[in-house]
């Protein structure tokens, strides 16, 4: 974390992760999971879809940062 913060890419990455967390909390609190119920493909409920999107955002951020900018390569 300390060494991540020493570089611009690391600061951008941490800001991105923080933004996904804040975005998730805001989406929840603003009622995005409440209601017909939302069903993607006829079975994926809103909390499941929100979680899958959240994990995918973390996965993409991780792939870009760790394979391009990780300080311990």
């Amino acid at each position: 974390m300390r060494e991540v913060m020493e570089h611009t890419a690391g600061k951008v990455y941490l800001t991105y992760l923080a933004a996904t967390i804040v975005g998730m909390v805001v989406a929840i609190v603003r009622g995005a999971m409440s209601v017909e119920p939302f069903l993607l493909f006829g079975w994926m409920t809103a909390p499941l879809v929100a979680g899958v999107i959240f994990v995918l955002l973390w996965l993409v951020g991780y792939l870009v940062y760790f394979f391009k900018f990780w300080p311990y390569r």
Partner: peptide
Amino acid sequence: GPGYVFFIWGSVA
């Protein structure tokens, strides 16, 4: 209902 799944999403992160 599905609300408790947010514990799992938080845990993964």
